[in-house]
Design a protein around this nucleic acid. Structure first.
Lengths: 151, 151
DNA sequence: TATTGTTATACTCTATAACTATA
DNA sequence: TATAGTTATAGAGTATAACAATA
């Protein structure tokens, strides 16, 4: 018999996500970073991205918002931007040595955090959690499409 | 056999929570509200709160931040503030008729959203999700205490 | 002195619109 | 004209510090 559910699932998700995000932000800040920076670094390192437009999409923000973060990271010496010689509209974003170090530092912080976060949860439960989160993601994607269709 | 887990659980949670939060914000905005306003309204309606301090804590924000939202809601005629005669430091926050209507509107939007969000998920899985979210919450609470202890 | 709440100020993240440069 | 990216501007949400009112 499943336990009764006291609050809507969206609110519970929001509440927990807020707690987790704050704790994670604190960890990243202690390692000299921030969540958007971490998402940018990890996207740069793990994906083959053809343009800033794709990078923005990978991170889930607008191009202009990405520019803000890239400017800050460039000012801090984490990356360089140069035009693609074959298509000079495209700016190639490349990590400096300092950017690589920042990535390593944040990766360690993120790994430590994840270890702490997973404490006492079985692999099986983690897999279940993934499946359920994917389902929620799917359901709000539906919601968006439905809203678009009726507007 | 559990499926392999491609990304850290915290990042996946953050990603899904962001999607869900955006979709929910859109719904609340369409109903003339926002997430902080909804949390404030629901706290006022469902709890017996002795002060703004307690209200801020229930919503999970600082007192000064709460003042910002209450000011806006008062400007829009959703609530009134008056001093408690028995302890004039305390401000009693009370919903107006318009505030009650706003609450009803947002409650309907939230219920519709939750229905959409839960589509295709069994009660048993919802209960499991609650249990796992509670565990994550517990684990970051630990993290915070640990960080405090070592600082 | 301690508590409740507000004001002043600023920071972070985000977005849209208008613009530049390139194609 | 279309695409990639930047600049200008603004808005939402949050926080801290200093303050006023009250106890």
């Amino acid at each position: 018999m499943p336990a009764p559910v006291p609050t809507p699932i969206g609110r519970e998700l929001a509440r927990v996500a807020k707690s987790v995000a704050r704790a994670f932000d604190d960890e990243l800040a202690a390692a000299g970073g921030s969540l958007p920076q971490w998402l940018i670094l990890i996207s740069l390192k793990t994906r083959q991205l053809a343009s800033q437009r794709e990078l923005a999409e990978a991170v889930g923000i607008q191009g202009a918002t990405l520019t803000v973060h890239l400017d800050a990271m460039q000012t801090h010496g984490l990356l360089t931007r140069r035009r693609d010689p074959t298509n000079r509209r495209v700016h190639l974003v490349e990590l400096t040595a300092e950017g690589q170090e920042a990535f390593s530092r944040l990766r360690r912080a993120a790994a430590d955090f994840d270890h702490q976060l997973r404490a006492g949860i079985s692999d099986r439960d983690i897999a279940t959690l993934y499946r359920l989160l994917a389902r929620l993601q799917h359901n709000v994607a539906d919601e968006v499409s439905a809203a678009d269709a009726t507007s």
